[in-house]
Amino acid sequence: MVTGLRPLMVGLLAGLCLMSVAANVAGAQSAPERVVSINLCTDQLAMLLAAPGQLVSVSDLARDPRASAMVAEAGRYPANHAGAEEIYLLQPDLVLAGSYSDPATLSMLERLGIRVERFEPAYGLDAVEAGIRHMGALLGQGSRADAMADDFAARRKAFVTRAGGPLAASYSANGYTTGAGSLSGEVILAAGLRNLAQERGMQGGGVLPLELLLLSDPDLLIGGDTYPGASRAEEILHHPALSALRAQRVQIADRDWLCGLPHVLDVVARLAAERQDLE
């Protein structure tokens, strides 16, 4: 009985997959007309690529000057708060979400018959280029996206990674730093710097104890935003031991390399200039 059911299930699943592929192809052919984005990074990519009137709403995070690099543009769109009810009432034919958006919201929207596309966060510079092309294909703006992605790839060629560059470390609240397999980690490498977290074998982001940072003696310390109010998490950035480091300091705003957007290359350029200073 069980073995008899199995091929049936597999067949059913395969059929479902085929149907969804077919739906995707159909979606790519006729561009969606009412697109709603509920994730900070898809907000910004969509605003860069959508045709006038095609994007109906972006998330409220896109208006937050600390998180978003496109605050002025976001002000021209009605804001949503990533809730299923308000999104459904906007009657979108495509919802752009992040792979970490609330799954309950997304499955609710899908049950209501709305197409939802989930974007992985960009974990590197290749992913930025791929993300631009993917967004272009979904919005039916393939040629505009290709031009932007080609331009990104061409500008990227100007920067080269190298083995013996100065040692850099990003260091933010709670002693958080980013290593291999993260966008900021790749941005640091692309600027011709070595990344402390990566050399310590850290994958993605993680906490680097202050002791280890001091003993590693980096050449460049990359700081981030500071927030109003107080937090214990940020106290580590004012630790007396940190001020004893001889490293050169640079501040990169979180918004500038939080999302996989073309302008992360501006950060690469800034860090490359710091590297030239050091050399």
Binding site: A173, N174, G175, L210, Y227, P228, G229, A230, S231, R232, A233, E234, E235, I236, H238, H239, P240, A241
Partner: peptide, 25 residues
Amino acid sequence: LSPNPFAANEIVFWMMGSLADRSFA
């Protein structure tokens, strides 16, 4: 209610206590 995004995560610190990364200050 704090405007600081890290503050809300620190409820556990205030209720449980920790000496990590404390300085002479």
